[in-house]
């Protein structure tokens, strides 16, 4: 009985953070920002925060936040920029900025056409395939 109770208490205790779910992304990104990550990977927590905010508010994001992401991405010198451009394109199109989303997609394709085509197969892009002129998978 003692063992069962201990396990139950432990389970309840550890599930506290798990309960927060998507808010964890925001929390984790804030920890990163507090650590003042230097370039090139400073953009990662910013994208994480923007992703969380986009999900929380039906895609709406302040233009200033998106512009900062653009600035960070234009100076990004790290690995696999294609993935980050795709994420930015997704944030832009959810925010209703299709022209900017197209620009981000162009940047993504320029960075790595193979990975660009690969990840565009995902169902995430289905609502905007026609608008953005994306190929059918």
């Amino acid at each position: 009985m003692v063992i069962v109770l201990s396990v139950l208490v432990l389970a309840v205790a550890v599930s506290g953070a798990f309960y927060k779910g998507p808010a964890l992304r925001q929390k984790a990104a804030q920890h990163r920002l507090a650590q003042h990550w230097a370039p090139p990977y400073r953009v990662l927590p910013l994208l994480g925060l923007a992703h969380a905010a986009s999900l929380a508010d039906a895609g709406r994001l302040p233009r200033a936040d998106l512009d900062r992401l653009w600035r960070e991405m234009k100076s990004y010198k790290g690995t696999y920029p294609v993935l980050l451009w795709l994420e930015l394109a997704w944030l832009e199109v959810r925010a209703g900025h299709q022209q900017m989303a197209r620009q981000a997609l162009v940047r993504a394709r320029q960075a790595d056409a193979k990975l660009y085509n690969f990840w565009l197969r995902h169902k995430r892009w289905d609502p905007w395939r026609t608008q953005l002129g994306l190929p059918e998978p």
């Binding site: 798990f18 779910g21 998507p22 964890l24 992304r25 984790a28 990977y41 990662l44 994208l47 994480g48 992703h51 790290g78 690995t79 696999y80 993935l83 980050l84 795709l86 994420e87 997704w90 990840w119 995902h122 995430r124």
Partner: peptide, 27 residues
Amino acid sequence: LAVDRDLDLLDNILLRENSYFSDPARL
């Protein structure tokens, strides 16, 4: 599972969230 409550890894890959437990340069 912890953050998105799903098994689809696309968000985590595009956001490079493996950087929470490994080298951020790694994919």
